[in-house]
Structure formats: C-alpha cells, structure tokens
Design a protein around this nucleic acid. Sequence first.
DNA 1: CCATCTTTGTGCACGCGTTCACAAAGACAT
DNA 2: ATGTCTTTGTGAACGCGTGCACAAAGATGG
Lengths: 225, 225
Amino acid sequence: MPTVSSEELAAAAGVNSAKLRKDFSYLGSYGTRGVGYDVEYLVYQISRELGLTQDWPIVMVGIGNLGAALANYGGFASRGFRVAALIDADPAMTGKSVAGMSVQHADDLEKIVDENGVSIGVIATPAGAAQQVCDRLVAAGVTSILNFAPTVLSVPDGVDVRKVDLSIELQILAFHEQRKAGEGAVDGAEGAGVGVEGPAAKVTRPTAGDDRKGPDGDVPAVMPA
Amino acid sequence: MPTVSSEELAAAAGVNSAKLRKDFSYLGSYGTRGVGYDVEYLVYQISRELGLTQDWPIVMVGIGNLGAALANYGGFASRGFRVAALIDADPAMTGKSVAGMSVQHADDLEKIVDENGVSIGVIATPAGAAQQVCDRLVAAGVTSILNFAPTVLSVPDGVDVRKVDLSIELQILAFHEQRKAGEGAVDGAEGAGVGVEGPAAKVTRPTAGDDRKGPDGDVPAVMPA
DNA sequence: CCATCTTTGTGCACGCGTTCACAAAGACAT
DNA sequence: ATGTCTTTGTGAACGCGTGCACAAAGATGG
Ligand SMILES: NC(=O)c1ccc[n+]([C@@H]2O[C@H](COP(=O)([O-])OP(=O)(O)OC[C@H]3O[C@@H](n4cnc5c(N)ncnc54)[C@H](O)[C@@H]3O)[C@@H](O)[C@H]2O)c1
Ligand SMILES: NC(=O)c1ccc[n+]([C@@H]2O[C@H](COP(=O)([O-])OP(=O)(O)OC[C@H]3O[C@@H](n4cnc5c(N)ncnc54)[C@H](O)[C@@H]3O)[C@@H](O)[C@H]2O)c1
C-alpha cells in the first residue's frame, strides 16, 4: 500500500506539515500513525470533498477569440468538466463547428441550460453584453459563473461569480517588479520625474516582503476586484 | 476640489472604512479631516504605488489559440502594458501578423528581451515547452512571468511567477456548487453511489460558509497551486 | 476668534489561522 | 508480548489582520 507522510506532502506543496495534517483532519481523512496516508484513499477523499468525482456540464457563451481558444482547451475535460454547449449571438457563428462542437444561437440559451442541467457558465462575450448574458444564465438556473469580460457582474445571492482579469494579474506582477527595483533605495525617487511627492517622511512602510504569505503573493485587499 | 470620504469608498468597495483608512495610511496618502480625500491626488498616489504610472513592456511567447487571443486583447494597453513582441517557435508562424504585430522567432528571444528592456513575460506555449521557455526568459533578464501552461514552473529566487489555471477556477466554482447542493443534508449521501464512506462520524466539519472572507471566497491553502 | 461639526488617523482588543510541541496510536522487529 | 520508532492528531500559544472606538485635526459658520 503506497503511502505518503504529511512531511513529504508539506515539503512538496511548500506548506507547514502541521497545517496540512490539521486541514486533512477537517476533511475527515485520516492516516495511520507511524506510516502516513494511503495515497489512493487520500486522493479519493480529497477529490470527493472538492467535487471532482462528479461531472459538471458547463456552457460557454461568446465564442470569439478567447471563447474559441477556451473551447479548444483540453484541460477542462481532464478535470471533470464537460463542455455541454457553445453559445454565440452572432448568426454568422451559429452552426459553425468549433472544437468539434456546433455553435448554438443565444436565443436557445435557456433551453440549452435547462436540458443539460447546467449550473456553471462561462462568459467570454464583450464587456457590454456580459451583464445581460449573466442575467439570462442566472434566470435559466445557472448558479456559478466564470467571467472573462472586464465588468463587475451583479448577481443575486446564492450565485457565485469568479472573474478572471488578466490585466490585474499583470498589475500584480508589475507591483512586485517595482518593489524589486526600488529595494534599498529607501528615500530615493526611482523612475523619472516624480514631481509632487507630498510628505513622504510620514510614510510608515512595512518592510518589503512582509505582505507575502505563501509561494504566490497577493496585494492587500483594499482594491476592489 | 472633488473629494471622497473613506466611508463612501468603503461602501463602494464593500469593505470596512477603518481598514481602508489604515491601508491608505500605509501608502502615506493622507486626506483632510472633516473633508475626505482629494480624488485626483489619491488616484495618483495609488497608481504610483501600484506601478501604474510607468509603462511595462511585455513579451508573449507561444502565439497559438490562446496567445493570439491575448495578443488581440486590448485590455492590457489600457492598464499601462505594452506588448513589445510576440514570439513563437513555429517557423510557419514567424513573420505572420497577429494583432498588427509581426510574430518573431523564438531564436531571437534573448535579443528581443534585452533590446526592449522587458522584465515581464507571458507564457502561452504547450505545457511541455513552458519550463524551457521560462528558463530562457529568466536567463535573458525577465523577472516576472505570467504562466498559462498547466505546469508548475521552477524559477530562481527573485523571480515571480503567477499561474492562471482556468481548470482550478472552475473547480473552485464546482466546490461551492457542491456545497450549495449538499446544504441541509447533514448526513445524507448526496449524489449517487458513494461506496466507501469511512468513519464519517469522526469528521469535525466547520459550518458551511466559514471559509469565506470577502466577496470572493477561496479554498483552503492546502492544495498546491 | 471661538464653537461646532465632520472625518481622518490610530491605539487597542478581538478573532482566526498558523505553528509549535507532544501525547497517543499503531507498525514492526525481536 | 513487549519495546522501539515513526508519524498522526490536536491542545495551546503565537502572530497578524480586522474592526471598534475615540482623540485630534481641520473646515466652516457665526
Ligand atoms: N482575448 C483575450 O485574451 C481576453 C483576455 C481577457 C479578457 N477578455 C475579454 O473576453 C471577452 C471576449 O474577448 P474576445 O477577444 O474573445 O472577443 P471577441 O469579440 O473575439 O468575441 C466575442 C464574442 O462574443 C459574441 N457575443 C457578443 N454578444 C453576445 C451575446 N449577447 N450573447 C452571446 N454571444 C455574444 C460575439 O459574437 C463574439 O463571437 C471580452 O470581454 C474581452 O474583453 C479577452
Ligand atoms: N486555450 C485555452 O483556453 C487554454 C486555457 C488554459 C490554458 N491553456 C494552455 O495554454 C497553452 C497554449 O494553449 P493554446 O490553446 O494556445 O495552444 P496552441 O497549441 O494553440 O499554441 C501553442 C503555441 O506555442 C508555440 N510553441 C510551442 N513550443 C514553443 C516554444 N518552445 N517556444 C515558443 N513557442 C512555442 C506553438 O508553435 C503554438 O503556436 C497550453 O499550455 C494550454 O494548456 C490554454
């Protein structure tokens, strides 16, 4: 019986082993003292808790540049997500084959969602259409939305929205990049011509690097998503 | 002089006003008591702190389905990112025009990075090529990488990597989706035929919803990115 | 110039997640 | 069966971010 110790897993994941054990204990998973965790059983338990044992049908709305790339992406299927339908409002797109599927017209959105029992939708339409598409998805029964359009979506309680904003990803990188460049230059004005400086002497700046917890740092939670 | 109070901003962002004020105080930005914050000055201060006042040249490597979609995306430029070059290893791609730019060959990667003073790179190659591309980018002087390939990249200290994994985004949605479905069914086995159950009685499960801090919830930090 | 009113900046306390440290549990050898 | 050795599961302490509450600051009006 192949096993792993919490120590090994923690090292691989880059986290504290005690934390990992405590987290596992919340899941009810348990190992064998002196031995470790049965790999197969552990994987099953975690998969089940994360909802990976069941198949989730998803619909994708907006089959343009990004939507088509997503539709062609094989990584979804391997994690238990099945693209049930591709939907676009452009009549020119309707009927076209993308990633081996026929693109369906947005008029049938409600029917498609209902017939396939879809609860997760992906929005890759232009920003202007996103809220409207979102409303229709929600009305049709979708309760989780992955949004690629650069808009904040309003949804009723009980509906989850995750927004993928690539610009913000880059901004986070740029933020840390700037910090690297400015390191050591305590009161020096990095960059060119920063005119209005204000009373910078009042600044109580935490030591650089303090804001990072794990392997991937995040910015403070002030800025709205 | 147009101003905003911390109260207004906090309401708009959905956070506590005290937290917002404290965060602002870290930036050295300061408002006027009894009045609020000068909007223009505040925007400038935050932009500067976040690195938005300078332009960041970026290179994009792997101009396939996803890379091309990204290249066509106008959202980067509006946030101060300039796509300095598109790079692909496929000779058939070289010289082709994508989003108004000529795709350059991967052989010239180092030269391109150097000449443009690029410190941020985007990887949209197949998983197999990602580490190799990453190594070359880093060797050429890139210190921040946005990775779309489903691989964990190894980088030396001082180099930041952010991974965009769309499957994980969907998994997070599915996770919450499952919780919604299982609510109220305290000890009922939702779904079909969950055979091996184990000593579920030992489970000390926190109340559903406890794991959420802000508007967008996240999974516990156990799972590696 | 003084009183009042609004809003900032922050000390302090609370709560939660993380980490330490260790007793208990079980495997395995003798 | 008993002892040893490894690794789990968890109580308790620690540290940090969040939120409360209020004094200080400054604007504004009389
Ligand atoms: N391309 C990228 O890399 C990228 C990156 C980040 C975000 N985004 C965002 O993703 C969205 C899509 O980007 P894109 O480059 O694929 O744009 P696109 O214009 O190529 O595609 C948009 C598609 O949505 C369809 N559409 C429009 N209105 C619709 C509606 N009401 N219902 C259904 N379909 C509708 C259009 O017919 C079109 O096919 C945009 O909001 C964009 O800002 C794109
Ligand atoms: N398409 C999606 O929606 C999506 C979503 C998530 C992740 N991804 C990942 O993003 C990556 C790209 O996806 P895609 O659909 O665009 O694939 P793709 O095959 O269409 O494009 C890959 C491109 O990379 C180029 N390439 C290969 N090796 C290279 C190298 N060593 N140097 C430079 N260029 C090289 C290829 O010539 C090709 O043009 C994949 O790793 C994929 O798993 C894609």
